[in-house]
């Protein structure tokens, strides 16, 4: 983990209410896809956690949806501003345990799966991505994943379809799933998908670094902090 000031390079709308923020600074603290950045934002007291969508040696990218005071304020960040970030938090996904991964994303839960797809591509494995959104104007990362040469399936609630409706088809030749999205979707995927899998959970966090126990979730081996022991948990470990 690393705390420091990161420069805003760009912060642009990429879908309805969704912004793509690129920050410049050291990314040495990032070891795995699925880890998160905890960002201090003027106007709200607590840092806000965001999964890292992509990174290189010069900086990293997050995608976020404006849903409250914190994200509304973040949308106002402009190139030239700098943000206080704690980077490289949480455990992240394990890409070494699958040869045929299925990535399942819901809404703005999709971003860490892009970073994960790049990790897989980097070791010569082509993932399949199943992404669900509310409607066409909410779609993010589908084109970017296709550009990585992933097979991408998109479901739209506005057309009466959810990711769970295409789980069987998407998981046919797959050996493991990796999911991130709203809790309702994650619960449904865990229940319906026969594959082993890893799920990235989202909770409200105060510190993001393991001090406060604000983000604890129940697992079969007791309460675990989403910020340190998570946010990624094995399907089998969750007490859902």
């Amino acid at each position: 983990m690393r705390q420091g000031l990161y420069n805003v390079i760009s912060n642009e709308s990429v879908a309805r209410g969704v912004y793509r923020l690129r920050l410049e600074g050291s990314t040495r603290a990032l070891a795995r896809a699925g880890q998160f950045a905890d960002i201090r934002i003027d106007g709200v007291y607590l840092r806000r956690p965001f999964s890292v969508a992509d990174w290189d040696d010069e900086g990293f990218v997050i995608l976020y949806k404006v849903v409250g005071e914190g994200t509304r304020a973040l949308a106002g960040a402009r190139p030239g501003h700098s943000l206080d970030v704690i980077l490289g938090l949480g455990n992240g996904f394990d890409e070494t345990i699958s040869r045929a991964p299925l990535l399942i994303g819901g809404g703005v839960g999709a971003p860490p799966l892009y970073a994960l797809a790049k990790r897989f591509i980097g070791i010569g494995i082509k993932p399949v991505a199943l992404l669900g959104f509310a409607s066409r104007c909410d779609i993010i990362l589908a084109d970017e994943l296709r550009a990585l040469d992933c097979r991408v399936m998109v479901t739209l609630e506005s057309e009466g379809e959810r990711v769970t409706d295409r789980l069987d088809e998407a998981s046919a030749d797959r050996d493991r799933f990796y999911a991130c999205g709203p809790e309702g979707m994650l619960r449904a995927v865990k229940r319906q998908c026969g594959l082993p899998g890893q799920l990235s959970l989202e909770t409200r966090m105060a510190c993001g670094v393991g001090l406060c126990r604000g983000c604890t979730c129940m697992t079969l081996t007791g309460g675990k902090r989403v910020c340190v022991e998570g946010p990624v948990f094995d399907k089998e470990a969750l007490a859902w």
């Binding site: 007291y45 607590l46 909770t203 409200r204 105060a206 126990r213 604890t216 129940m218 309460g223």
Partner: peptide, 25 residues
Amino acid sequence: EPRFGNDQPRVTDCPAGMLNAVGLE
């Protein structure tokens, strides 16, 4: 006794502070 604490969400904030209801985990 060991305690799991309260259900989620346990934390939120305001302009100059925060609220917690961790529940003695």
